[in-house]
Design a binder for these strands. Structure first.
Lengths: 113, 113
DNA sequence: GTCTTGCTTAGCCATATTGCTAACTATCAC
DNA sequence: GTGATAGTTAGCAATATGGCTAAGCAAGAC
């Protein structure tokens, strides 16, 4: 058990901050400039820029500069590993609970034949 | 855009650490004691205990002490908010790309009638 | 050119996170 | 009771995170 899946760590960490989730939700409405992304957050631009760099490092967002405006957009494929991990976990968890269920059922039969 | 969804922040933060994900994966095989949970990680018990408390704070794991052994188990419902958020995001992202697609299609038609 | 706008960089501060060791408590085996 | 086992608590150190201000730079407006 160790430091595998750095991607997942980056992704989950990027998603763990409400400001960053709000930025993603804003971008789900369409591309936006940095100032627009800061929007109603009340945070300063440098702060937003750091959050943006976290989102970019995780691959969730891409941005490009057009003139003096940086336009930011979602990278829709980026959440795939997250979904994959969640699906795997759920599958394993369900298998576990099925096993526990079987176990309990067997116990019941043994005790109440 | 603000500090809503403290649950989501706790959950994503709990999932952002590979050690904690490994602990969850171990628990997906069945309940385990703390020492067992530390297992091959090479980390000391106090460290594991802190990770455990993060997982419990996020609601992902429950534990109870039986004699001198603390037994830990998954809480399968805990990931639901995460799945919910991901599903919402995906739906919005798809809607966005459909809109962009329509837009491009319309542009093409206007230019190449 | 000059000014404004939009972003960027550098650097500071407070707090949180992640690891550790050392010392303690509580149970179980004998 | 004695001793081993399983957690637990307290506290330390290094680093990461999230916010800020101040100062800089580049593009567009005039």
């Amino acid at each position: 058990m160790a430091k595998q899946d750095p991607d997942l760590s980056l992704l989950f960490h990027a998603l763990s901050d409400p400001t960053r989730r709000a930025m993603l939700e804003r971008l789900a409405q369409g591309p936006a400039a940095v100032t627009e992304l800061a929007g109603p957050s009340g945070l300063r631009l440098p702060t937003i820029l750091r959050h943006l760099s976290v989102l970019e490092a995780a691959g969730l967002v891409t941005s490009a500069k057009d003139g003096r405006v940086r336009s930011c957009a979602l990278n829709p494929a980026a959440l795939d590993p997250v979904r994959g991990w969640l699906d795997d976990q759920r599958a394993q968890w369900e298998a576990l609970f099925d096993r526990l269920d079987d176990y309990v059922t067997r116990l019941m039969k043994e005790r109440m034949p």
